[in-house]
């Protein structure tokens, strides 16, 4: 009887020890992680963690990884530098027995701080419909794209004439608009503005195709000088210097051509003439007038 009781007691002790060994780790783990659903980029916060003992804390973000040993039962401090980039973050907590729990939270972009502004093209002919396109991407100070709608103001300041503006709401972080070029050549500044953030770009409005191209002939002995009127487009804007004008002379010696650039608004060339000659002028694909020179002027 005594031997049976002693044996039973030993068995009980062994069983209790076994149960204790099984339960203790569970008591030690008890690490629950509660994270906010959404955090603003660059905003420090804390994660309350329950439990006791030591654990390994991991934070895995789009461009950042943290691994450190923490004490359970106190709040985990997340620095602002840990959550600068927008996206999904994962928090993993592994206790001494290597059992891990995890949670995810989202970091959203902060307030607007940068605009990536595209203005196209950099040179555009005057008075052309839907020829200027502007697109602005809105970023926060950490260059996260701000996906919530925001109002971007596009202010247009032409070289001459009154300026105007147009407000466009962003969609998925992008605001874009299209406009006609103004009738006058020159520098046009377009500024995209949102709150305190501004970004300016400049485009050059240039004369369109030559219009009403005319030349006159001035004789001097056996030479004739051909000179165009100031070369302008149909809106009266002068074609820039350097634009090539082609003069062609046809006479009994054959055909002669000279491609010469406009200088100070006009193009000028000299030909020798021997007998009747027909001279024409062109600028790009635009033809001008023709003059006939008979050699006896």
């Amino acid at each position: 009887m005594q031997r049976t009781a002693h044996h039973d007691f030993a068995r009980c002790k062994r069983l209790a020890a076994f149960v204790l060994l099984c339960v203790l780790p569970a008591w030690a783990r008890a690490a629950e992680v509660h994270v906010p659903a959404v955090v603003e980029a660059g905003q420090a916060f804390s994660i309350p963690v329950q439990g006791s003992g030591q654990a390994t804390f991991y934070l895995v973000g789009p461009d950042h990884v943290v691994k450190r040993t923490v004490s359970l039962g106190s709040d985990l401090q997340i620095q602002s530098s840990d959550v600068r980039t927008a996206g999904r973050y994962q928090v993993i907590l592994c206790d001494a027995s290597s059992s891990c729990t995890s949670a995810t939270f989202e970091v959203k972009a902060a307030q607007p701080a940068h605009l990536s502004f595209f203005l196209h093209p950099s040179r555009v002919p005057v008075s052309t419909r839907d020829s200027i396109d502007a697109a602005a991407f809105v970023f926060d100070q950490y260059f996260n794209l701000i996906l919530t709608p925001a109002a971007v103001d596009f202010r247009i300041t032409p070289a001459s004439g009154a300026g105007f503006s147009r407000e466009v709401s962003t969609r998925r972080g992008v605001a874009w608009m299209r406009m006609d070029s103004t009738p006058h050549e020159g520098r046009v500044q377009v500024t995209a503005a949102l709150d305190n953030v501004e970004e300016a770009r400049v485009i050059q409005q240039v004369a369109a195709e030559a219009c009403g191209l005319r030349m006159k002939a001035v004789a001097s002995g056996s030479m004739v000088t051909l000179e165009t009127d100031p070369v302008r487009d149909c809106s009266g804007n002068a074609l820039p210097d350097g634009t090539v004008v082609s003069f062609t002379k046809v006479d009994k010696a054959g055909k002669s051509t000279v491609d010469t650039p406009i200088k100070k608004g006009i193009a000028r060339v000299q030909f020798g003439v021997d007998g009747r000659a027909q001279i024409s002028v062109a600028c790009g694909v635009v033809l001008g007038n023709e003059v006939v020179v008979n050699g006896k002027l």
């Binding site: 055909k255 002669s256 060339v269």
Partner: peptide
């Protein structure tokens, strides 16, 4: 550069 200007004369 817009220079030089080369004239093509008496083509036939």
């Amino acid at each position: 550069s817009a220079d030089p200007v080369i004239a093509v004369m008496d083509q036939k």
